[in-house]
Structures are given as structure tokens and as C-alpha cells.
């Protein structure tokens, strides 16, 4: 009995490893292509590269102005997510704690944003951003991303806060703390797990987004990784020798972060989704 059980686990293990290889094959394929010359790509697309040659990467690195666009992406993502955590957690607090009708109406007002297609906002938003002189500015993009992600952040924060105890903040208030101080001292530390979820989900959304930079960050010196890659494809349509390394470079920073933090990222996503 035991041995058949063990055998079944082994079979499952092997099946899953094969499945994972198939699932990751498209990515492994792209990586293998980056080391090939254009000729080798056309003649033997499926075989492993004949030599490990980084010259495609060097060319792409320069043409994509990689350090600049990476810096832009990091700055915009970090700024947006910081603003989002500050505004989102503070707003969720009264929405989760107060039962009055006004608060639940405001909560629904935020939640409506989850279902809105962003395309619906684009033209009026462009007019607005333009008239405020915020096209091609970092803070313009940050404010847009904050607004876009606020519904999700508030949903997650409020869901968590409703189930978490109030004793600490009551104690802080009795000790004479202002509500504002009580929030930062007694509430914000408790909701750290959701903050992790919000940071992960919204960093991914922001880092990978391509519509906002397409509309608002067209200027050479403000482009993010995705829009640079998109422009790059526009200019080099058939030149896969430059495109493949461009794709790998655009994914690499996120992949490295993922490799180091995968435990927290996966936990954060699962926790946030099930609590909310």
C-alpha cells in the first residue's frame, strides 16, 4: 500500500516537472535566441545557440538606453507605490471602522474604479494632464498610477482592517494620542501584511503598464522600460536580434526581484486575495 502511494507521488512529481518545463519553454526559447546571430536564428531557431555571445545585448543596451529607462521605471514605480500606500491605508481606515451610511457610499465610490475600463478615462485625462502641464513629468505619471490603483488598495486594506482588532488604537487614543498619531503608531504596523500585498500587486501593475507612458511619457528622457520596448519594436520590426535581448532586459529586473522575494510575493498575493 505504502509503496504504491510513494510511486504515485513520484509519477506526479515527474509529470509536474515536465509541465513546468513546457510552461517555461517560451521564455527559455527567447533567452536562447538572444545569443544567436540573425542567420542562426533563421536557420536553426529551435536548437541551442552554438556559442554564448553577448554582442546582441551590448547593442540593445545602448540602443534602448537601458540605464536611463530602468531608472525612470524604478523612480515612477517607487513614487507611485509610496503615495498609494500612504493615501490608500489612511482612506481605508475610516471606511472600515465607521458604519455610517456616508462611509459606505464613499467605499462604493472607490470600488466602482475596479470595474472601469481605463480607456474610458483617457481623452479627458489627457486634456487635464496637458492643461496642468504634467505631460512628460514623473509626478504626473505617479498621480495617475496612484488614482488607478487606489480602488484595489482600499479594497484590500478595508477588507483586512474589518477583521483586525481595535484594542491597540483604542488604547493609543485613551493615552491621548491624536487619531492621526494613533493611526500611524497602532494601526499602520498591524496592517503590514496587506501593505506587502498592495506593494507587490501595484508595483507589478505599474512596472508592466504601457498605456500611461504611451500617452503621457513619450519624451525620450522620460520613457519607461515597456514604452521604450514598444517604440523599439516599432523601429526594428524585423530585427529580432535586437528585440529578443530587449525583451529579456525588460523582464530581468523584475525577475531578479521575484527570485529573491518570491516567498513574500506569492504569500502576499494569496493573503490579499483571500482576505478581501
Amino acid at each position: 500500500m505504502l509503496s504504491t502511494n510513494k510511486k504515485m507521488i513520484w509519477i506526479l512529481e515527474i509529470k509536474m516537472i515536465i509541465l513546468a518545463l513546457i510552461a517555461l519553454y517560451p521564455l527559455l526559447f527567447i533567452v536562447s535566441m538572444t545569443f544567436k546571430s540573425s542567420q542562426e536564428m533563421a536557420l536553426s531557431p529551435l536548437s541551442l545557440p552554438s556559442s554564448i555571445n553577448f554582442s546582441n545585448y551590448a547593442a540593445t543596451w545602448l540602443q534602448m538606453r537601458f540605464p536611463l529607462v530602468l531608472g525612470n521605471t524604478v523612480l515612477i514605480t517607487a513614487g507611485s507605490v509610496t503615495l498609494l500606500v500612504l493615501l490608500g491605508s489612511m482612506a481605508a481606515y475610516p471606511l472600515a471602522r465607521r458604519a455610517e451610511k456616508a462611509y459606505s457610499i464613499i467605499y462604493m465610490y472607490f470600488l466602482a474604479g475596479i470595474m472601469l475600463p481605463f480607456q474610458l478615462a483617457m481623452v479627458p485625462l489627457y486634456k487635464l494632464i496637458n492643461s496642468m502641464g504634467m505631460v512628460n513629468t514623473y509626478y504626473g505619471a505617479m498621480l495617475i498610477y496612484t488614482a488607478l490603483n487606489l480602488p484595489l488598495a482600499i479594497f484590500l486594506y478595508a477588507g483586512f482592517l474589518r477583521t483586525s482588532p481595535k484594542e491597540l488604537e483604542e488604547a493609543a487614543k485613551i493615552d491621548g494620542c491624536s487619531l492621526f498619531r494613533a493611526f500611524w503608531l497602532a494601526v499602520f504596523p498591524i496592517i503590514k501584511p496587506v501593505t506587502a500585498t498592495v506593494v507587490v500587486l501595484c508595483s507589478l501593475n505599474t512596472w508592466n503598464d504601457f498605456i500611461v507612458p504611451l500617452l503621457f511619457l513619450q519624451d525620450q528622457s522620460y520613457r519607461t522600460i515597456t514604452i521604450e520596448l514598444y517604440m523599439f519594436v516599432g523601429e526594428h520590426v524585423t530585427n529580432w536580434a535586437l528585440l529578443f535581448p530587449g525583451m529579456v532586459l525588460s523582464v530581468l529586473p523584475l525577475l531578479l526581484v521575484y527570485v529573491f522575494l518570491q516567498k513574500y510575493i506569492i504569500k502576499g498575493i494569496a493573503a490579499g486575495s483571500l482576505k478581501g
Binding site: L83, L86, L87, G88, M90, A91, Y93, P94, L95, I106, Y109, F110, A112, G113, L116, L120, A121, M122, V123, P124, L125, L128, L143, I144, T146, A147, L148, L150, P151, I154, L179, F180, F183
Partner: peptide, 16 residues
């Protein structure tokens, strides 16, 4: 507590 979020969300998403 609510005002900053409402202002940003309304100006840059719901208003448009």
C-alpha cells in the same frame, strides 16, 4: 484621512 485619496482618485480617474 479620506480627503487626499478622494481628491487624487476623483481628479485623475473618476472625474475623467
Amino acid at each position: 484621512f479620506l480627503a487626499p485619496a478622494i481628491i487624487v482618485y476623483t481628479t485623475f480617474l473618476l472625474g475623467p
